[in-house]
């Protein structure tokens, strides 16, 4: 197990380097360090000296990828790319272009994102599984057919609609929840109700439909038929056999996205003014703060890889026949 983990982490390195190179190229194709300096220094009365100062202060005075004026190893290390990327690998994100410590901001904004994403996931799972079970109970009846039709309809509604309509009805018309904002501690609950509700409702269409097929797949297996033929009660069959076994693909699917919960929901957070990582990323894109975007891309890639590893591990736990070495 340990050896496996070490090997997977070792394999992740080239991927992370690749990610870094790619984002770096993309951002410097579109923005010269001069642009970034001007963006940060504001637009009134900025002189070239001030720009050069800023660049030197933030380490953007070096060449991008290759330093021709240096010698030896420094041709590669004494560049913006190396200076800015190397520290990422020890999770030292450095200062944003506007001068705040990125690591500090991420650690602050992680929790609001998580506070929305985790309950949405858990409640969503519970709702989706119960609904799917209910539908499976009525398989091959009109109810099943109609439910599937409703699910497809739900699935075809744009997520934006759920957000806009939810905010309008619950916040503006009915005065049930604050229309936007966030607070720390227990005071956060009233701000979280609506985003979580919307998250759950928006996920019903696709979630229930997927879980329904999992359950149906399980229900047609021989052992289930045998159990039923032996006269085991329908509820028992459903819960003891079908539910338990179908839970494996459901949970392994969930494990893959667990780490990404921290990345935050872009739309929900910006609509509800929740200071999570999603809105952090969106703001950084709009302000073209390269340091933040690069850090978030890196973080996203790391979490994605963690998700992959977790999935592999959960497969072996769920089904001991699969050995880790094969994956």
């Amino acid at each position: 197990m340990t050896a496996y983990l070490i090997r997977r982490i070792w394999q992740a390195l080239p991927i992370l380097i690749g990610v870094n190179v790619l984002t770096f190229m993309l951002f410097f194709v579109l923005n010269s360090p001069d642009d970034m300096a001007r963006m940060q220094l504001g637009d009134k009365r900025v002189t070239q000296t001030a720009i050069d100062n800023w660049k030197a202060e933030h380490g953007y005075h070096l060449p991008l990828l290759y330093n021709a004026s240096a010698s030896g190893i420094e041709t590669v290390t004494d560049t913006i790319f190396f200076q800015k990327s190397a520290k990422l690998f020890v999770f030292d994100f450095g200062l944003s272009d506007s001068g705040r410590d990125i690591g500090y901001d991420i650690s602050q904004r992680l929790w609001p994102s998580f506070a929305i994403a985790a309950p949405s996931l858990v409640i969503g799972l519970m709702v989706n599984i119960s609904l799917a079970l209910l539908i499976v109970l009525f398989r091959a009846t009109v109810i099943d057919l109609m439910s599937v039709a409703v699910l497809v309809v739900l699935l075809s509604i744009s997520g934006l609609f759920y957000i806009i309509a939810g905010q309008f009805v619950m916040g503006k018309l009915l005065h049930l929840v604050p229309i936007s904002g966030y607070d720390t501690g227990l005071n956060a609950i009233k701000f979280l109700v609506l985003p979580i509700l919307i998250g759950v409702v928006a996920g019903i269409g696709s979630g229930v439909r997927l879980y329904r097929t999992f359950f149906l797949e399980e229900i047609e297996r021989d052992y289930v038929r045998t159990a039923r033929a032996k006269g085991v009660h329908e509820w028992v069959v459903l819960f003891r056999h079908v539910f338990r076994n179908a839970l494996i693909p459901i949970l392994t699917g969930v494990v893959a996205i667990l780490p990404l919960l921290f990345m935050g929901a872009l739309l929900t957070e910006s609509f509800f003014g929740i200071p999570g990582l999603g809105s952090y990323t969106l703001d950084a894109i709009n302000r073209q703060d390269f340091a933040i975007v690069r850090s978030m891309v890196f973080l996203g890639a790391v979490l994605y890889i963690v998700g992959l590893i977790l999935t592999d591990i959960s497969y072996t736990i769920a089904d001991p026949r699969i050995r880790l070495a094969n994956s």
Partner: peptide, 14 residues
């Protein structure tokens, strides 16, 4: 793997 590990929105924005 490299491409899919970059969050899609960021890539599109860039």
């Amino acid at each position: 793997t490299t491409l899919s590990s970059i969050p899609g929105v960021l890539l599109i924005a860039a």
